[in-house]
């Protein structure tokens, strides 16, 4: 990093204002969709799985605001429930993967030595597995369903978080206060929990924020190829996959697709905003 020049500082401040707009937009989008998802049972005009015979493939408006699918199910209700499922699966997947991965990363980063290089080689291998294969293996062992997608996403993010938090632990280990604590004979476990962990927390939150939109996309992708919750439970990916049978009724692809886009865009903006708050030194243009 070069010395911060005056014009640079000015531009950063201006940029941060933009950032705030992004943050607010992201928050509004995500909170809006979260609320819609969480309140789905209240908001949804119909049950997401109820089939209305004779009402198949209705268009927009009327009793079914966003139309119905080929089995006569209300698209709006299904989309609302699917958004909820997507958020939940994404959050749980990233949450589990990030937590476990980060703990491993902190420990091996702090302990170092052979354990460290062994685990690092394992992460090399883990990162090389495409998420689709992780998903297929998980489904093959435990059967399809939301839990399979959560585990697949968690496994997918685990090695990345091991690496990120390990790097952070390495840096922190060299910091004076940690070295001081170690020299005073404080136990390793205590040092990791008291000093390393809290200092690595912002990075953790930041990375979770960055991973979340991707995780929602992964969830949709995995459900799209049939690894997600089995029908009739609504998932965005499955709705889109079903829409492939009705390409002359683009509405079936557009509604869940737009919901997914809004969700991901919202999460992205939110992550950008969070990064700006947590890590003002790094401009987000640099990191993405």
């Amino acid at each position: 990093m070069s010395v911060i020049t005056a014009p640079r500082l000015l531009s950063r401040m201006r940029r941060r204002e933009h950032r705030r707009v992004a943050l607010v937009t992201g928050l509004v989008l995500v909170l809006g969709l979260c609320a819609a998802g969480l309140l789905a049972p209240l908001l949804a005009p119909h049950s997401p799985v109820a089939q209305y015979p004779g009402e198949e493939l209705r268009g927009y408006g009327g009793r079914f605001l966003l139309g119905t699918d080929d089995l006569g199910r209300d698209t709006l209700s299904r989309t609302l429930y699917a958004c909820r499922a997507a958020l939940l699966v994404g959050l749980l997947g990233v949450g589990i993967g990030a937590t476990v991965g980060s703990l491993i990363g902190l420990v091996i980063g702090y302990v170092g030595g052979r354990l460290d290089s062994f685990v690092m080689r394992l992460t090399d291998i883990g990162i090389g597995f495409p998420v689709v294969i992780v998903g297929i293996v998980v489904v093959a062992i435990g059967g399809p369903g939301p839990q399979a997608v959560i585990i697949a996403i968690a496994l997918y993010y685990l090695p990345a978080f091991v690496r990120i938090l390990r790097g952070s632990a390495l840096q922190l280990r060299a910091r004076p206060f940690v070295e001081a604590a170690a020299s005073m004979g404080v136990k390793d476990r205590v040092i990791v929990l008291r000093h390393v962990l809290p200092n690595a927390l912002p990075l953790f939150v930041l990375q979770v924020g960055l991973a979340l939109p991707d995780a929602v996309l992964l969830d949709a992708g995995l459900s799209f190829i049939g690894l997600g919750a089995p029908p009739p439970s609504p998932t965005l990916g499955d709705m889109l996959s079903q829409a492939r049978s009705y390409l002359d009724v683009p509405r079936l692809a557009i509604v869940p697709g737009l919901a997914l886009c809004l969700l991901v865009i919202g999460l992205n903006l939110l992550a950008d905003g969070v990064r700006d708050v947590l890590d003002p030194r790094e401009s987000s243009e640099r990191a993405r």
Binding site: A220, F224, L240, R244, I254, G257, C261, V264
Partner: peptide, 21 residues
């Protein structure tokens, strides 16, 4: 912002609907 938020397989589906069908 938009490009990073649009899932590629959905975009693919829409492109197919428009350009192939």
């Amino acid at each position: 912002t938009v490009a990073l938020g649009v899932p590629n397989f959905w975009l693919g589906l829409i492109l197919v609907i428009v350009f192939a069908i």
